[in-house]
Design a protein around this nucleic acid. Structure first.
Lengths: 246, 246
DNA sequence: CGCCTTCGTAACAGCATGTAACAGGAGCCC
DNA sequence: GGGCTCCTGTTACATGCTGTTACGAAGGCG
C-alpha cells in the first residue's frame, strides 16, 4: 500500500486546519486548499488520491466543483457539509461524489470513510482495452490461458498443475487486492460445504499451494515477492498485470 | 477459461460493494455501477460478459432497464431483488432476464448461477492493471514503496518487517509533525477499539517497534536522530522527505 | 541529591508462515 | 491387475514476527 495523498478543500481556516492536522496524524499526506484555483494548482502539481471537498466554498458550490472535477479527473471525492438533508445527500452522489459526510462528524467515522473510499478506488484498475486472446503478463512472466503454460522472464517454460493454475488465475484477476485464505479456497472450490460448520479443514492447504506456486514462479531473484504474504490475512499478487494480444 | 467481466448494478452502496467484493474475490473482473448512466458508460467503454441488475434502482425499475438493455445488447442479465413473488419472477423472465435471484441469497448459489449463465458465449478482453510506484528519500535513505525495501545512504539494502514498514510509512507521510503513540497505533490498526474502554493495551508496543526500526535505520552515526523522541508525547521524523518519480 | 516518570531494550512467549516429508488417489502404460 | 508417476492435502517442525514484560538508564523537578 502506498501513502495516500489527500486534498482537503475548505474555505473555513479552522475547519481546514483541523481536518489537515487530524488526517496527517492519521498517516496521510495532506495538501490543504481553500479555493478553486488552489485545487487546480495541486491537481496539476502532483498525484492526488482523494479529495475531501466542503460543500459550501464561499460563493461557490462544492457540488458544482465536484461535478466539474468529475468530468476531468478520476480520483474519488468525499463531500463534507453541514447540510445533511437527504436531498442534498442525493445531489452529492448524483454529481459523482463517492461519499458524503455531514458535519459535525465523528473523526473515527471520517477515517473509516476515507479509508473505505481509498480502498475502493485502489481496486478500480485503470484499463486499456484491446482485442486479444488471454495472455497475461505480470512481473516479467507470461501466462498463456489457452495453453495453460507459464513462461519465465528468461524464456523458460514452466508447467503448472491444476491447483497452481487455478490459484494463479484468481491472483491475476485480482492484482494488488489482498485475498484471504478463505476467499482463495472458495474460489478454488476447496473444502466445499461441510454441511453447516465451517470446518476450516486443516487450513494449511492454501499455504502449501502458494508455496508450490512460488517455488515455480519466483525462482528469479531479480523479481522477488511477486506473491506477497499478508500476515494474519492472506496473500496478494504484488505486481501489475497486462493482457496481451494473442 | 477467460476471466469474465461482470457489471454489478445496485444503488445501495453496501449491497453493491458486498457483491463487487465477493465476486472479485471469486475470480471475476467486476465493474460496479449505481445508475442508468453508469451502466451506459461501462457498456460503451468495454466488453461486459454479464450484468447483475438490482430490480429496485431508486426511482427506476430494474425490470424496465433490463428490457431496455435487452433491446440494444446481447449480454446475459441476472436480476437481483428482494421481491421473490412468483409473478415478479415471471416479469423478470419475460423481459429477457437470464435468471432471477431473490435477496437474501446464498453466496454459493449466486456464484453457481453466475457461472451457469456465463457458460455461454464469451469474448476476450485486454486490460492493464497499473499501480504507481512511490519512492521517498529521507536523510540519505531511500524507501521504495513498490518493493517495500529500504536502502541505506551507503547503499545497503535493509529488509523491514510488516510493522516496521507501516511505521515508516506513517512517519514519511508526516515529516516534522509530532505523532503521539495513540496516533501511530491508530494508523497501524493496532489495539483496535476494545469495545468501550481505551484499554491502552500494555502500551509499550509502539516503543519497542520504534526501537526496532531505529536499530535497522539509524545504524549510520553520520545521520543520527532521524527518529526523535518527544518525551511524554511520542515521536517525530526529524528530516525532510522527498518523493521521487519511479 | 532523591524520587518519580518515561524510555530503551533484551528476553520471552504465542502464533502465523514456510516447507520438507508423507500418504492416499487418479491416471497411465504394460 | 500391477507398478509407476504425478498431484494434492496433511502433518510436523523450524523460523521469523510481534506484543508483553521486566529492569536499568535517563530525564524532570523540588
Amino acid at each position: 500500500m502506498t501513502i495516500a495523498r489527500l486534498l482537503v478543500v475548505d474555505d473555513d481556516t479552522d475547519m481546514r486546519d483541523m481536518l489537515t492536522d487530524f488526517l496527517r496524524r492519521s498517516g496521510f499526506f495532506v495538501l490543504p486548499a481553500a479555493t478553486r484555483s488552489e485545487i487546480r494548482a495541486h491537481l496539476t502539481a502532483g498525484r492526488i488520491d482523494l479529495i475531501l471537498l466542503d460543500v459550501m466554498l464561499g460563493d461557490e458550490s462544492g457540488v458544482e466543483i465536484c461535478a466539474e472535477l468529475r468530468r476531468e479527473h478520476e480520483m474519488p471525492i468525499i463531500l463534507v457539509s453541514a447540510l445533511s438533508a437527504d436531498h442534498q445527500r442525493m445531489a452529492g452522489y448524483e454529481v459523482g461524489a463517492d461519499d458524503y459526510i455531514a458535519k459535525p462528524f465523528n473523526p473515527r467515522l471520517l477515517l473509516a470513510r476515507v479509508r473505505a473510499v481509498l480502498g475502493r478506488a485502489r481496486r478500480t484498475p485503470s484499463l486499456v482495452y484491446r482485442r486479444s486472446t488471454e495472455r497475461y503478463r505480470f512481473g516479467g512472466w507470461l501466462y498463456d490461458g489457452k495453453r495453460d503454460e507459464v513462461t519465465s522472464p528468461a524464456g523458460f517454460q514452466v508447467t503448472l498443475s491444476r491447483r497452481e493454475t487455478q490459484l494463479l488465475k484468481v491472483l491475476l484477476a485480482n492484482p494488488h487486492i489482498p485475498l484471504t485464505r478463505e476467499e482463495i479456497a472458495a474460489s478454488l472450490d476447496m473444502h466445499a460445504e461441510d454441511g453447516a460448520e465451517e470446518a476450516e479443514t486443516s487450513g494449511r492447504a492454501i499455504d502449501v499451494l502458494v508455496g508450490r506456486l512460488r517455488s515455480k514462479i519466483e525462482r528469479d531473484p531479480k523479481v522477488p515477492d511477486l506473491l506477497k504474504t499478508l500476515r494474519g490475512t492472506g496473500y496478494v499478487l504484488a505486481t501489475d498485470v497486462t493482457a496481451e494480444e494473442a
